[in-house]
Design a binder for these strands. Structure first.
Length: 484
RNA sequence: GGCGCGUUGGAGAAGCGGCUUAACUCACCAGCCUUUCACGCUGGCAUUCACGGGUUCGAAUCCCGUACGCGUCACCA
């Protein structure tokens, strides 16, 4: 088998979309699995919408996910350049070749003319398709148009009969009649090639062996194959992966929530969780496990287990996966990730003291098992900060009215006073002693303390909450809740 | 409208002619663990695979039609 060379070829017209990230991931997994090469190519031929900023976003999003590439605009490679706007002369050369061979032609039709054709075809109930008007212009006509100042586009001459058969790795055999394909534009009037033309030239020149991309490109594929055939080039293997749909089964869009990789990053998702989730979007493992590291994915991934049916973006599942990774990563890492979130929310200054860092670390330890995304830590912050405590409901109020409460609180005060510093292990021990000495049992001791300190019936372990609060805050809170 | 693709439980998703009385995961319910919540563990949760025909000894799996959804028909990628 020849060397596997795959590519991810986004157009830099916005932040990296979750669907794009999934295409990039699949390509990356294939490249690594078969010890091939991954090419990153920037398709920036849409001058209007492309931006450097989007390009930067694509680079950083991919890196964040842990996807890297062997050749690309930032690192170069033997087929450089990797930005289409830097390859314009190459496309011109090949377009010229097609024109000379009679496989492409200049078209001078104006937008108005084309629109009129379209309307007429629609009115007659026909498929709108290029009329072929400029297919056989004489040299004279051409000069006349040029003299009028018209800027031509170059159109590919599509054979009028025959069909294009695609042997797609995930979709099987798909056929398209040539008849349904009009002569399409390959070079715009400003001299920039269109997508359908540039991809083919680049994929061929860059020796891409497998084109793995989203299903929306499936109906473009016959046009591209026609170009391969016009040049007599060997075609790559195609694999069109299904679209990503939202919960309502329509194409994933802003309406469904976050759609870009950066958004997930900002919402407190871990890159390995996003990668794991993305891999499951359209692909399924043979075994029962669903949690995989990048290494495992590289080992297990294969295109023949990629499904044809559309992949539905299940936010609940992403949350669950993210929660899993949060529970299984280190406190140090979570602390580092939590700091900017807490800073932004005003819980921390921009420069941290050792003491503040330790404080965050304790909070993170306390809530680690409860989080599904890092920013959920903010939901727990009222437990750890502020002097005032709101009793959450009547039930909580009732807990504080139980008869053993004064005794429990007194014991707590005594125990805490005996301790020089509050740390989880010591507090845990002290609490157990209270249970033992009072002979009241767990619930009657823990629940009043919990409610008195936090106002809530549920929450993280008390032996974490107490050290986080510190003696001073504890006194203030006790005073606050008990004298109401 | 033409062309192309899809349709399995509350949700995601395997299975692609007999081994399926339809995996697995999430959610949900019950029990256990536990000071609470959460985590973890155990068990329960589709007689049925959009619908209607057909092929076959046998169909979720193959064929045809209908419905619904999605994609695409650009000088966007």
């Amino acid at each position: 088998m020849e060397k596997v060379r795959v590519r991810f070829a986004p157009s830099p017209t916005g932040p990296l979309h979750i669907g794009g990230a999934r295409s990039a991931l699949f390509n990356y997994l294939i490249a690594r699995k078969y010890k091939g090469e991954m090419v990153l190519r920037i398709e920036d031929t849409d001058l209007e919408r492309s931006s450097k900023e989007s390009e930067e976003n694509i680079f950083s999003s991919l890196k964040w996910l842990g996807i890297d590439w062997d050749e690309g605009p930032d690192i170069g490679g033997k087929f450089a350049p990797y930005r289409q706007t830097e390859r314009l002369d190459i496309y011109t050369k090949y377009a010229q070749q097609l024109i000379e061979n009679g496989q492409a032609f200049y078209c001078f039709c104006s937008e108005e003319e084309l629109e009129k054709d379209r309307q007429e075809a629609m009115a007659k109930g026909e498929t709108p398709k290029y009329s072929g008007r400029c297919r056989n212009l004489t040299e004279e006509q051409r000069q006349k148009f040029l003299a009028e100042g018209r800027k031509p586009v170059v159109r590919f001459k599509v054979p009028e009969t025959g069909e294009v058969v695609i042997e797609d790795l995930v979709r099987g055999t798909v056929r398209f009649e040539n008849e349904g394909i009009g002569d399409f534009v390959i070079v715009k009037s400003d001299g920039i090639p269109t997508y359908n033309f540039a991809v083919v030239i680049d994929d061929h020149l860059m020796e891409i062996s497998h084109v793995v991309r989203a299903e929306e490109h499936l109906s473009n594929t016959p046009r591209q194959i026609l170009i391969y055939e016009a040049f007599g080039w060997e075609k790559p293997v195609f694999a069109h992966i299904s679209l990503i749909l939202g919960k309502d089964k329509t194409k994933m869009s802003k309406r469904h929530g976050a759609t870009s990789v950066v958004q997930y990053r900002e919402l407190g998702y871990l890159p390995e969780a996003v990668v794991n989730f993305l891999a499951l979007l359209g692909w399924s493992p043979q075994e029962e496990e669903e949690i995989f590291t990048m290494e495992e994915l590289i080992q297990k991934f294969s295109l023949d287990r990629v499904a044809k049916n559309p992949a539905v973006f299940d936010m609940e599942k992403l949350r669950w996966i993210n929660g899993y990774y949060i529970r299984h990563t280190s406190i140090e890492r979570l602390t580092e990730l939590a700091i900017p979130i807490l800073e932004k929310a005003g819980y921390l200054p921009s420069e941290l003291t050792e003491k503040e860092y330790e404080w965050v670390k304790l909070i993170v330890t306390a809530v680690q098992e409860k989080l599904h995304s890092l920013n959920e830590i903010l939901d727990y912050m009222p437990i750890f900060t502020g002097e005032k405590v709101e009793l959450e409901n009547e039930e909580a109020k009732a807990v504080l009215e139980e008869e053993q409460v004064p005794q429990v609180i007194e014991l707590l005060r005594t125990k805490l006073a005996e301790m020089h510093t509050l740390e989880p292990e010591g507090v845990k021990k002290a609490l157990k002693e209270i249970v033992k000495e009072s002979k009241l049992g767990g619930r009657k001791v823990y629940m009043p303390i919990r409610v008195a300190l936090t106002g809530q019936m549920h929450g993280p372990e008390l032996y974490y909450i107490i050290p986080v609060l510190g003696k001073e805050l504890i006194e203030k809170r006790l005073a606050n809740t008990l004298h109401k």
